[in-house]
């Protein structure tokens, strides 16, 4: 067969064009679905931190993403950004959710430029919660989560965590209810000073301590990551917590 340079060049151009067209078409077709998945996951995490999301029910729904969006619209009554002084930024309703996609960069900014998102939920019984995103590093990669606080902005009402690639069965347990339930009722402030929630090694080692939970067994580094994530990220919200909380 004749294989001149012209043939090779024409061949590769045709190949590249065909491949590019096929891939672009498929991506155009699938992107809305993918984005809706990502969005729904964030919404379900936010709702999960106040115990308003039931994975079982969601997977039974005809359209899981639609179901989650409806729940979100029903229970999340307010969302806004706060600046480094703890002031709400007016008119930042939409940007708050967008900011979730960019958390790492936002927490890395110098303090005066930070704009951090807060979500407010109200459940069927009229209970109001403030929900804060947190972001940090585990053993293998990023970990993140949402912490919900009662209106005194001190008591934790719930927490969800997720991770990119922690060891299944060990570090990855932070994404499961047994670990997350421990956070309920813990408090962030000791008197007037912000202490966060520490993660202590050994089952039962944290009992009676209002500022600590048990680490995941076999997942020490991941647990430590959770501890510093809460301390650093919620620490960045401290001006807001102090300003709007009732106790301080």
């Amino acid at each position: 067969m004749k294989q001149t340079n012209t043939y090779i060049i024409v061949y590769s151009i045709v190949l590249v064009v065909v491949v590019a067209v096929v891939l672009s078409l498929v991506t155009l077709w699938l992107t809305p679905r993918q984005q809706s998945n990502v969005q729904a996951e964030k919404m379900s995490d936010i709702l999960g931190s106040v115990g308003l999301y039931d994975a079982q029910k969601a997977s039974e729904a005809d359209d899981k993403n639609e179901y989650i969006k409806e729940l979100y619209a029903k229970y999340i009554i307010e969302s806004f950004l706060v600046d480094s002084k703890g002031n709400k930024i007016a008119g930042s309703e939409k940007e708050a959710f967008m900011a979730l996609g960019n958390l790492k960069a936002e927490f890395a900014k110098p303090e005066s430029e930070r704009r951090l998102p807060v979500f407010v939920s109200k459940n069927g019984a009229g209970q109001v919660n403030y929900i804060f995103p947190v972001y940090g590093a585990g053993l293998w990669g990023p970990i993140w989560g949402y912490i919900s606080l009662a209106t005194n902005l001190d008591t934790v009402d719930g927490a969800v965590f997720d991770h990119k690639g922690e060891t299944p069965g060990l570090g990855a347990e932070i994404a499961n209810p047994p670990f997350q339930k421990q956070f309920i009722g813990k408090s962030l402030f000791d008197g007037a000073s912000f202490v966060g929630i520490s993660v202590t090694k050994g089952v039962g080692s944290s009992s009676g301590n209002p500022h600590a939970v048990d680490a995941v067994s076999g997942g020490t580094i991941t647990s430590r990551g959770v501890q510093s994530m809460i301390k650093d990220c919620l620490g960045d919200y401290e001006p807001f917590l102090v300003k709007y909380g009732v106790k301080h």
């Binding site: 294989q3 090779i8 061949y11 590769s12 190949l15 491949v19 498929v26 993918q34």
Partner: peptide, 28 residues
């Protein structure tokens, strides 16, 4: 039809395209 001199790269392009398709479908 594959020109033998660029054989490997043609294979890689076809395989990469398929993998991207699979990846996109999984994500969706």
């Amino acid at each position: 039809t594959i020109p033998s001199r660029i054989r490997i790269i043609v294979q890689l392009v076809v395989v990469a395209a398929l993998v991207i398709l699979v990846d996109q479908v999984l994500k969706a």
